[in-house]
């Protein structure tokens, strides 16, 4: 099978300009079946605009996008795609349940699905309240419920945890993970690193309309680093640099921070001890995606190449 036939979402060279502003700048995306794909970027990076193009809400200035092998936004793509873009949008005068019935009619979905999805987002007991009476978090959950009505193969969620309290966020993340387990393909945008790290298989980082990195969360996070306390510290640096084992060594206060492959840890310690350096602490730190994110978005060119 070719990659193109495998991809559930495929975007090639998507560009969207608003007057002189380039909101989305040659974005390529490939989302594979059953994947939970994160779309990470700061405010104004172009996440929502890209997702709108994947749903046919916004017409690209140039470039193409397909969903499930058909043009993005076509009825046959939409009927298998559930989405919530830039917050939930419903009629304030209708109850939550009636809003879902409205959406179900539009989508050609049996009305029986309505109560199922209300259960899924824990809104069943408040389904009779009007949308206007809902709290921010309840509105957000109703939006996700509407996205699930079609029992969709593809789920597009734009900042789904927006406005949720910690418990709501935890539930929402668990739900996204569960959607992935059920074999659905999920693409979600976020500016919360922890969220993406927790739920996504792969992540694209977008900044100023450009994809500046795309990989698995592990790859993006990169190698881990070692924090070593050694005496005398100058000699330790010399020995390590001479050995060629670590990728980099730098002073971190009284300690050393060493970037190296995990399997070289033992060899590094042995080298130091053999050279007569006293090693009093070795600690392995995992870089948080957050650090990587700021590194990338601060210096997009350096990482994109």
């Amino acid at each position: 099978m070719t990659a193109a036939r495998e991809a559930v979402i495929e975007a090639r060279g998507l560009v969207k300009t608003y007057g002189p502003n380039v909101a989305v700048d040659h974005v390529d995306l490939t989302v594979r079946p059953g994947e939970v794909y994160g779309f990470l970027g700061p405010n104004g990076a172009g996440k929502t605009t890209t997702l709108r193009m994947l749903l046919g809400l916004v017409r690209p200035t140039s470039g193409t996008a397909t969903v499930l092998g058909v043009p993005a936004g076509s009825p046959s793509a939409l009927e298998r795609t559930g989405s919530m873009i830039e917050g939930p949008a419903f009629y304030p005068y209708l109850s939550g349940r009636d809003n879902l019935r409205f959406v179900a009619r539009l989508a050609g979905v049996p009305a029986g699905r309505v109560d199922e999805v209300l259960e899924t987002v824990h809104l069943a007991d408040r389904g009779g309240d009007t949308f206007a009476q809902y709290s921010l978090g309840m509105k957000q959950r109703l939006g996700v419920a509407a996205a699930l009505l079609k029992d969709p193969e593809v789920v597009v969620l734009d900042e789904p945890t927006n406005g949720l309290d910690p418990a709501g966020m935890r539930d929402m993340r668990a739900l996204v993970v569960e959607l992935g387990r059920q074999g659905r393909t999920v693409i979600l945008s976020s500016h919360l690193m922890g969220e993406v790290q927790e739920v996504c298989d792969r992540v694209a980082v977008i900044s100023n309309g450009r994809i500046v990195a795309e990989s698995t969360v592990e790859e993006l996070r990169g190698g881990t680093s070692l924090l070593v306390t050694a005496e005398p510290v100058e000699r330790a640096v010399d020995v390590l640099v001479a050995s060629g084992l670590p990728e980099s060594v730098r002073r971190d206060g009284p300690d050393l921070r060493i970037t190296a492959e995990p399997r070289d840890t033992a060899e590094i310690v042995r080298t130091l001890v053999t050279a007569g350096v006293d090693v009093t602490r070795v600690q392995r730190d995992e870089r948080q995606l957050e650090d990587v994110f700021f590194e990338i978005t601060d210096h997009p060119q350096g990482v994109a190449s």
């Binding site: 046919g56 809400l57 009825p75 939409l78 949008a89 419903f90 009629y91």
Partner: peptide, 21 residues
């Protein structure tokens, strides 16, 4: 017109029917 104030046009436009439908 309310579809624009409430943003519900995007909810309608992302279900299944084409814009002409």
């Amino acid at each position: 017109g309310s579809e624009y104030g409430w943003g519900t046009f995007k909810t309608i436009a992302t279900q299944r029917p084409s814009r002409m439908s």
